[in-house]
Design a protein around this nucleic acid. Structure first.
Length: 597
RNA sequence: GGCCCUGUAGCUCAGCUGGAUAGAGCGAGAGUCUUCUAAACUCUAGGUCCUGCGUUCGAGUCGCAGCAGGGUCACCA
């Protein structure tokens, strides 16, 4: 049992014995003592003074004395107003380091593979344009949350749902037929997703011209948008697609193939992957079946024009369309189908959807309709709603060309990493291949940390004019800390054979050492909290705190140069523990740490 | 307009289920490499926590109202 659990129990006992206050240990919250005061953990006694009928200082004194008398790990306590600060004995911290030094997986729970899995859907791209910064946030979050849940012991299945069909891809196809002159990724040297995206933009350009012409000749805007020849043709193409038209299907397969090759490349560079990939073209029919079931059950209804709806006015929402009047399906139809399919495939304990907060309404409706269709597992659906990535002048809009392209951004990060590394000039002994790998993991480390350190639920700002930092609260800072530690541990291992061996008794620690160890001690609860909140940001901030505490210690405490062999061995052990913790927490963020840099 | 989210230092962000004098990084200023990797460390300056009212022994944190910004309310996804 760790010290904080032990303390809360002892406090509960003290409250009971001293004042007959019955409080269970779980209801007692300790906080870490603030730097300005001496002590390790603090109990705020104000909540108990009324029942104790004593002054806050007296209550704190009583509890402190009681706990100190019963817990040998508590070496002392002090009282400041209503705050009771406990001091933990060095012997406890030393024993703690001793225990975790040999445990490379400290803080990580073992996964139980026979448990019902948690299915995490993320990425979920459309196949009509390349990935941009918004998708990057999605992919990094999805990957990291999966790693985080695994670290907390869950059996996670990562899935991708590729939106490979619909009006959007028809637009790209149509524009390519019209204006493409048979261009291919091979003939142009373009990445396939970028080539297809080019024609999506091309469609929009010509479509706008047509709308403008119609409006100039006196047609209302609504009508013009609906009746522009390109739009009509795109819709016909979608209809032909749903009817299985060979020509349309052939072109569709060809162009989607280009896009997949491009996506795979971007996923590979981002270091993300999936256990299973769903394609909406395979699942939307199931959605249509569900709609039929809903009609049979009477929870859906058909309007005169043939369109199918769900009435949610009783739930305070609107009516929601599920099938267009021409019988083709919409987003919601498909999502109903894929939800059912996924539930059947995995028998999941939870179905997590990593999707932007602009779709909060969609998921609210999705859960409601699943419930109306009679699926008891509707409440297992959890929308992990993350905030938008905004640019200094607002939201990214693909049609207005204000997007930060994912591949471009990664390229830029890599060349910045190379520049920085060359400036430092520390990597001369590396081979070209090792150097290239280093630039890559530093680039991705900077990018991933930048995005993952902010609370997922909040919108965040990205300023393309200021490139992502490599100093301060950044990924490379933590990577650097790890590399420095590894350097020490290598020397220690080679020269001294100190790994995991140490005489622990009677060592006096300094403040810096104690802070590092206390931070290490908080790792398991940090991971638990982060997993409960689906927040890699908590892990990122933890890793930063740990690295900072270590650097401060490293700065003015000799390690290998320490003359006292016992102290030296203890410090090397602290180093190994920190290196492990940094590697494991960064791994949760999908960030690799280098041996040297 | 209805509903949802956000508002903390010049900028980007922390601040766990309410607790001590609100913290980091960047940027600004000053120091530290003959010493285990200076992508580091140490110090200084910088705040009406959007505003008001309320709940509480105690509010950046909870409630209500207002102001500001964003999202959404598609036969787009």
């Amino acid at each position: 049992m760790n010290i904080t659990d032990h303390l809360t129990q002892a406090i509960a006992a003290a409250l009971n014995e001293l004042y007959s206050i019955s409080a269970d240990a779980a209801s007692i919250t300790l906080q870490e003592t603030r730097r300005e005061f001496s002590g390790d953990y603090t109990l705020v006694v104000f909540p108990y003074v009324k029942q104790a009928r004593k002054a806050p200082e007296a209550v704190a004194q009583d509890i402190g004395a009681h706990v100190a008398a019963n817990m040998p790990e508590v070496s002392g306590f002090n009282v400041v107003k209503g705050f009771l600060n406990f001091e933990v004995a060095d012997s406890y911290w030393l024993r703690f380091i001793e225990t975790i030094a040999s445990d490379g997986r400290f803080g990580l729970s073992e996964q139980s593979a026979d448990e019902a899995p948690v299915v995490v859907e993320y990425s979920s791209p459309n196949t009509n344009k390349p990935l941009h910064l918004g998708h990057i946030r999605n992919n990094l979050l999805g990957w990291s949350v999966s790693r985080l849940l695994e670290a907390a012991g869950a059996n996670v299945k990562k899935v991708n749902l590729v939106n490979d069909r619909g009006i959007h891809i028809c637009k790209s196809m149509l524009a390519w037929l019209r204006y493409g002159n048979g261009e291919t990724p091979e003939s142009t040297g373009m990445k396939g997703d970028h080539l297809v995206g080019k024609y999506y933009v091309e469609f929009d350009k010509h479509y706008k011209e047509e709308v403008k012409q119609l409006m100039d000749s006196g047609v209302e805007e609504e009508q013009a948008k609906r009746e522009a020849p390109l739009m009509v043709e795109a819709q016909q193409m979608l209809k032909r697609w749903e009817e299985g038209d060979k020509e349309v299907r052939g072109l569709w397969e060809k162009m989607n193939g280009w896009v997949y090759a491009g996506f795979d490349e971007t996923y590979r560079r981002l270091g993300v992957g999936f256990d299973k990939v769903y394609y909406e073209s395979n699942t939307y029919l199931l959605g249509k079946e569900l709609v039929q079931k809903g009609l049979d059950l009477g929870v859906l209804f058909r309007k005169d024009d043939g369109s199918v709806w769900c009435d949610l006015t009783a739930d305070g929402l609107d009516q929601k369309l599920l099938l267009r009047r021409d019988g083709t399906s919409v987003y919601m139809t498909q999502d109903l189908g894929t939800a059912l399919l996924r539930h059947n495939d995995f028998g999941a304990e939870r179905l997590i959807y990593v999707v932007g907060n602009e779709q909060d309404y969609h998921f609210k409706v999705l859960k409601l309709i699943l419930g109306k269709l009679g699926f008891s597992w509707a409440d297992k659906v959890y929308h992990l709603s993350y905030g938008m990535v905004e640019l200094p002048n607002g939201k990214m809009k693909s049609r207005e060309g204000t997007v930060v392209d994912a591949d471009d951004l990664i390229d830029e990060m890599e060349s910045t990493a190379e520049e920085m590394s060359r400036e430092h000039g520390k990597n001369d002994e590396l081979t070209d291949e090792e150097r290239k790998h280093l630039y890559h993991i530093l680039a991705l480390g900077a990018l991933k940390y930048f995005i993952l350190k902010v609370d997922p639920t909040k919108n965040m700002l990205f300023n393309p004019a200021e490139s992502i930092d490599f100093n301060g609260n950044t990924g490379p800072f933590i990577q650097y800390t790890h590399a420095r530690i590894r350097s020490i541990v290598r020397r220690a291992g080679e020269n001294e054979g100190l790994n995991g061996q140490c005489e622990w008794d009677g060592i006096q620690m300094n403040e810096k050492e104690r802070l590092v160890i206390k931070t290490l001690h908080a790792l398991p609860s940090t991971i638990r909290q982060a997993a409960a909140a689906y927040s890699p940001a908590l892990v990122a901030n933890y890793a930063y705190d740990l690295a900072k505490a270590f650097n401060s210690f490293y700065q003015d405490t000799p390690i290998l140069k320490e003359a006292d062999q016992k102290i030296k061995a203890m410090r090397v052990n602290i180093c190994m523990c920190v290196a492990n913790a940094l590697r494991n927490t960064m791994d949760i963020l999908g960030i690799e740490v280098p041996e040297r840099m």
